[in-house]
């Protein structure tokens, strides 16, 4: 199970970093979301992976899951959710102010950009 979770975190991180390096605000926002997923899963697994174990003290139970990472993840989820919402609003604002969705606010006609446009049109 550890290797599976590790692979999931790795693929989320890879996808997230790839998208953040894109030149348009929408992929960047998506990349941030993926990266936040990766971080949350990572934090969660830092309490070690347990199945079917309670996080609250109960009589007659000896094996527990660590509750603290769960609390940390909860905070991290809320914060990343708020931040993503703000980023999307800011991107829309920038699209409105600058007239395009390039992260630098400058319209470019490079090959990469036309490719993205074709995909978007499809």
């Amino acid at each position: 199970m550890e290797i599976l979770v590790a692979l999931i975190i790795a693929s989320f991180t890879t996808g997230g970093i790839f998208l953040i390096l894109k030149g348009r605000t929408f992929p960047v926002a998506l990349g941030m979301i993926l990266l936040a997923y990766a971080v949350n899963l990572f934090l969660f697994s830092m309490g070690r992976l347990h199945i079917n174990q309670s996080a609250i003290l109960t009589d007659g139970v000896s094996a527990y899951a660590d509750p603290l990472p769960q609390a940390l993840v909860l905070t991290a989820i809320v914060i990343s959710f708020g931040m993503t919402a703000f980023l999307i609003v800011l991107s829309l604002r920038a699209r409105y102010e600058l007239g395009n969705d390039n992260v630098d606010g400058i319209e470019t006609d490079s090959l990469e950009d036309t490719d993205t446009q074709k995909k978007e049109n499809r």
Binding site: L35, I79, L87, S91, R93, V103
Partner: peptide, 17 residues
């Protein structure tokens, strides 16, 4: 401000991650 705001925000979000 909108342009540099995005730069500032994205780099700090990556930093938070």
């Amino acid at each position: 401000r909108a342009r540099f705001g995005i730069h500032y925000m994205v780099i700090n979000l990556v930093g938070s991650s």
